[in-house]
Design a protein around this nucleic acid. Structure first.
Length: 270
DNA sequence: CACACAACCTGCGAGC
DNA sequence: TGCTCGCAGGTTGTGT
């Protein structure tokens, strides 16, 4: 489910709700997520939440003991907060904060919940090889120009690779390339300066617009208060195989690139 | 090294 | 009603 806009939406919603609150206890399910829970996860009881932030598609909940609860939603993860969250199949982590609970639910268990000391975050294996945040000023066409040099493969898999740019997943890759007018199969090294500029611009615009709509809900994704997102109604190409391109009317095409469905207009995207 | 692909899981909709 | 098949917002390990 969750690409940068969805994770950012969860983070913004949670931040208002849990900063300053004290953790009373932690309950874990017996099934393991992508990684085993660390043995000291339950030891955070008694600590207070200092901040809630996002890095790449990870949610970072920093505590006043300098531990960071790291949550990744995988494909189907939900992080819900409230006083009356009903018990559900696939609940894996329940953190009580007074009368309210923070619950991690994930049917497919591709996500993870772990604990990393704040000082070790950057050198941790999950974070040490991550690329640039796309919604920063440092992400510009010059940055991309250096990286795409000699890169074969396709521009779509390139922009989805977190080693280069974080947060862009399968939906927003298709959407960004549509607005940039670039064929997803193009070789990264073949893009001109002007195309790289359009690509940077489109990625930023699409991600910001999606955040403004509270993310995209296909199936599982919800905000921390349970609300669904709205950006799925704004898709230009994703999931629209056979429908008319909103710019030129040509039927939207679908191909599989690196095993992922990819949608584009073969007239608007060259 | 750089890339393609399978594997990790469960659930759901389509088609028979 | 009930089966099987294919597919789903991600990441990572393996093989070429």
């Amino acid at each position: 489910m969750p690409e940068l806009p969805e994770v950012e939406t969860v983070v913004r919603g949670l931040r208002d709700q849990i900063v300053g609150k004290k953790i009373q206890g932690v309950v874990l399910s017996d099934k393991k997520l992508r990684k085993q829970y660390p043995s000291n996860l339950s030891a955070i009881a008694g600590s207070r939440v200092v901040s809630v932030e996002r890095r790449s598609k990870y949610i970072l909940i920093t505590l006043n003991n300098n531990d960071v609860i790291v949550v990744h939603l995988g494909m189907s993860g939900k992080l819900l907060f409230g006083s009356k969250i009903p018990e559900n199949k696939h609940d894996h982590v329940k953190i009580s904060l007074g009368s309210e609970n923070l619950v991690y639910n994930d049917p497919r268990r591709f996500g993870l919940v772990t604990l990393i000391p704040a000082n070790d975050l950057e050198k941790n294996e999950l974070f040490c090889e991550l690329g640039i945040e796309p919604l920063t000023d440092e992400f510009d066409y010059k940055y991309l120009k250096k990286l795409v040099k000699n890169k074969t493969g396709t521009i779509k898999t390139f922009i989805m690779n977190a080693k280069y740019i974080v947060g862009v997943g399968n939906i927003y890759a298709s959407e960004s390339l549509f607005y940039a007018g670039i064929d997803p199969m193009r070789k990264p090294s073949s893009l001109t300066d002007s195309e790289l500029k359009k690509l940077v611009d489109s990625i930023k615009k699409v991600l910001i617009a999606a955040i403004d709509s509270g993310g995209s809900t296909l199936r599982d994704y919800v905000r921390s208060n349970g609300d669904v997102g709205g950006f799925q109604h704004e898709f230009a190409v994703y999931g629209k195989k056979g429908e008319s391109c909103k710019l030129c009317g040509t039927k939207i095409a679908m191909v599989r690139i690196a095993g992922r469905s990819t949608f584009y207009c073969n007239k608007c995207q060259k």
